[in-house]
Design a protein around this nucleic acid. Structure first.
Lengths: 347, 347
DNA sequence: GTGAAAGCGCTAACAG
DNA sequence: CTGTTAGCGCTTTCAC
C-alpha cells in the first residue's frame, strides 16, 4: 500500500531525467514531443533514463508552457444515455488515436448547468470543444466565442452554429418516419415527446406535426413525458394510451428506449403489436432489432457522429483546416415488424 | 463565427482582472479559491471585475502552482457499456458536486492499453484515480503506486488492492444465482462467459462452477463468446444451444445484454422461456424487468458503486481520511419469470 | 485582510 | 542537433 505521497515518481522532473542521461532538460523535452529532431543515440539514452527513473511527463506544466493542453472537452446532456454513449466512444477513440485526452461534463438538459459546466471546462484550456446540441444561452455562446477555442456542435441542426457543425436534422428524421407510417396506412398517429426544454425532442415533435399537416391531418396527438431515458416511462405511456377511448393506430416515440418499454408493455397487457397498435422508435438501437416484432425506428449513425466530430475538431486544432466545416449526417427510416400492416410487411 | 484565436477571453490573466479591480493578483486568486479570507467589499469588487472582463480562471496554471489539478481520472474497459455507464454517472455527479472534473480513458479490456492509458493519465497529475477492475500488470501497479496518487478500484474484489477498494464479489454473485437456479429445480445449467482476459467474467464463471460442484455436479457447461456487449451474441449463443442435442435446462449469461438477446431469440424461434428453457442474466438492467417473461438477474448497484468510489476518493484527496478503505457492495439475486418453473413462481 | 517575491515544471525562441 | 534564457499564469510564503 505504498502511499508515499511525497516521494519518487511524482516528484521527478525533466531536470532529473536530463542529469541522469547527461543531457539538458530541453533535449528530454524534445525527445518526448518531437523525437525526430533528436539524434537517435541521444534519444535512446533519454529513453533509458526515463525508464530507469520512472519519470512521467508532466502535462500540466507542458500545457502551461506550450499553451496546448491536449484536452478535448465534451459537453453532453447526460452520460448514462445510450443515445450519446456511442458518440462519446467515437470521440474518445479518435481523440486518443490522435494523441489527446477527453474530459467530459454533463448538463443534465439544463442551460444554467451548461453555462456553469462550460466555464469550468474552459478553465482547463482545452484545445477544442465538442458539444451535443445547438441550443445555448447567450452567455454560454459568448463564453465559448470569446475563448477562441474551436468547437464542434452536433446531434442537431442550426443555421447559426458556433463554429463547426456535424448536423443531424431531427426534424427531417421525425417527419420522414411519420410520413412512412402514414404511407403504411396508419392515420391516427400519436407522438410521445419530452416535457422539457430539449431542443432535439422539440424538433422531432415538429417534424411529426409537419408530416401530419402535409397530409391534411390537423390534429396531432402529442403525449409529453418527463423522464425520457427509462423504459418505465414507456409503460406509463401505455397506460395513458389504453385509458384513452380514442386509441391511436400507431405511436411514434421520441426514442427507442421509450418505444421498447411501450412495445413490451402492450404485449404484457395482451395488446398485439402491430395488430392492435403500431409502435415506432427513434435512434436505431440494437435492442429494437431483437424484439418480437422488431421495432421500427430511425437509425442514427451515433458512433460515426462522434468520429466525424472529433476528426473535424482535431484537423482544426492541428491547423489542417481553417474555415468552419458544416457536415450533415444522414438518418435512415427502418420499417420493421412493429409497424407492419400485413404479414407481408413484416421484416 | 468569431475565431479570434489570439484575442480576448483566453488571453486575460489575473493581473488584468486585478488591475481592473484595483487590487493585486493575489487578492483575485484568494477571492476565487477561498472567498472567506477576503474582505466582503473587496470580494465583490473582484467579482464585478471578473464579470466585466469575462475572465476565466486558468486551471492549468493553478494546477501547476498549487500541485492540485482538481482532476479525477477514470479508467474503465469501455465507455459504451451500460454496465459501467451508470457508475461513471455516479462518479461524475459526486466529483462535480465536490468541485472536481473527470477525465476518462478506456482500456478496451487490454492490459497493454491500460498501461499506456494510465501513464498518459498520470501525466495530467490527477488528484485521484478510479479504476474499474483489480487485475493489472506489474508495471501498471508500479506506475500507480509510485505516483502516490490515491486510488479506488472497483467492480471486482481482491485481497491485494492498490489502495482503496469498493468491492463486489462477482464470484459470490454468480454462485448465488447458480445456487438459486439449482434450488429452483434446474439441473443442467449452462453458463455463457467471456473468451477474453476479463477478470470479472472469469470470477463469474468460477462462481458458477463452484455452485454446481457444491451440488455434486461435476460437468459445468461453459460457452465462451467474444463480444459480450452485443445482443447479437446472445442470438448466436441460442443457435449454438439449439444445435446441441443435449440441451441445457437453463442458461446463465454473463450479463443482461446477452441474456436479453438470447431470451428474445429463443422466443422468435418458438422456444418457450421458461417453459422449454430457463434464462438468467447479470447486472440488473431495466430492460430485464420489462421483458415478457421478465428476466431473472443479479442486481448490481451500479450507480451507487460510482458514488461510493468517488466519495471515498474525494475524502482521501481532501485529507479527511488517512487509511485505505475497503467497502463491500452487495448484489441481489432476482428470480423472475424467465426462470420460473411453475405459474406460481412467476413474478 | 492584502501585497511582493519566488517558483511550480515545462517549452518557445534563439544561439551556437 | 543541442543548450541557454526567459517566461507561461498562477499560488505559496512571508511580510506588513
Amino acid at each position: 500500500m505504498s502511499r508515499h505521497r511525497i516521494e519518487d515518481g511524482n516528484r521527478l522532473t525533466m531536470e532529473d531525467v536530463a542529469r541522469h542521461a547527461g543531457v539538458s532538460a530541453m533535449t528530454v523535452s524534445r525527445a518526448l514531443r518531437s523525437p525526430a529532431t533528436v539524434n537517435k543515440e541521444t534519444r535512446e539514452r533519454v529513453a533509458m533514463s526515463i525508464a530507469d527513473t520512472g519519470y512521467i511527463h508532466n502535462l500540466v506544466a507542458s500545457a502551461l508552457a506550450s499553451k496546448r493542453s491536449g484536452l478535448v472537452a465534451i459537453i453532453l446532456p447526460t452520460i448514462a444515455s445510450s443515445m450519446f454513449a456511442d458518440s462519446i466512444k467515437g470521440v474518445s477513440e479518435v481523440v486518443r488515436r490522435r494523441g489527446g485526452q477527453i474530459v467530459i461534463a454533463e448538463t443534465l438538459y439544463s442551460s444554467a448547468e451548461e453555462e456553469r459546466v462550460v466555464a469550468a471546462l474552459l478553465g482547463r484550456r482545452p484545445d477544442g470543444l465538442i458539444i451535443i446540441g445547438v441550443s445555448h444561452t447567450r452567455r454560454m455562446r459568448q463564453l465559448v466565442e470569446r475563448s477562441g477555442v474551436p468547437v464542434v456542435e452536433t446531434w442537431d441542426s442550426t443555421t447559426r452554429p458556433l463554429d463547426n457543425l456535424v448536423s443531424l436534422s431531427n426534424y427531417d428524421a421525425a417527419r420522414a418516419m411519420t410520413k412512412a407510417l402514414l404511407d403504411n396506412g396508419f392515420r391516427r398517429i400519436a407522438f410521445v415527446g419530452s416535457m422539457g426544454r430539449d431542443h432535439r425532442a422539440e424538433m422531432r415533435a415538429k417534424g411529426y406535426v409537419a408530416a401530419l399537416n402535409a397530409r391534411g391531418i390537423a390534429t396531432p396527438q402529442i403525449i409529453r413525458v418527463d423522464d425520457i431515458a427509462s423504459m418505465d416511462t414507456g409503460t406509463q405511456v401505455v397506460e395513458e394510451i389504453l385509458a384513452n377511448p380514442r386509441r391511436p393506430e400507431a405511436v411514434f416515440f421520441l426514442n427507442d428506449v421509450l418505444a421498447a418499454g411501450a412495445l413490451l408493455a402492450f404485449q404484457s397487457r395482451g395488446i398485439s403489436v402491430p395488430g392492435d397498435i403500431g409502435v415506432a422508435g427513434f435512434g436505431g438501437f440494437d435492442l429494437g432489432r431483437h424484439l418480437n416484432p422488431s421495432l421500427s425506428t430511425v437509425h442514427i449513425p451515433r458512433y460515426e457522429i462522434g468520429c466525424i466530430a472529433a476528426d473535424i475538431l482535431m484537423d482544426r486544432i492541428e491547423g489542417k483546416v481553417e474555415a468552419p466545416i458544416n457536415r450533415r449526417v444522414e438518418f435512415e427510416v427502418l420499417l420493421r415488424g412493429s409497424t407492419a400492416r400485413s404479414r407481408a410487411d413484416v421484416r
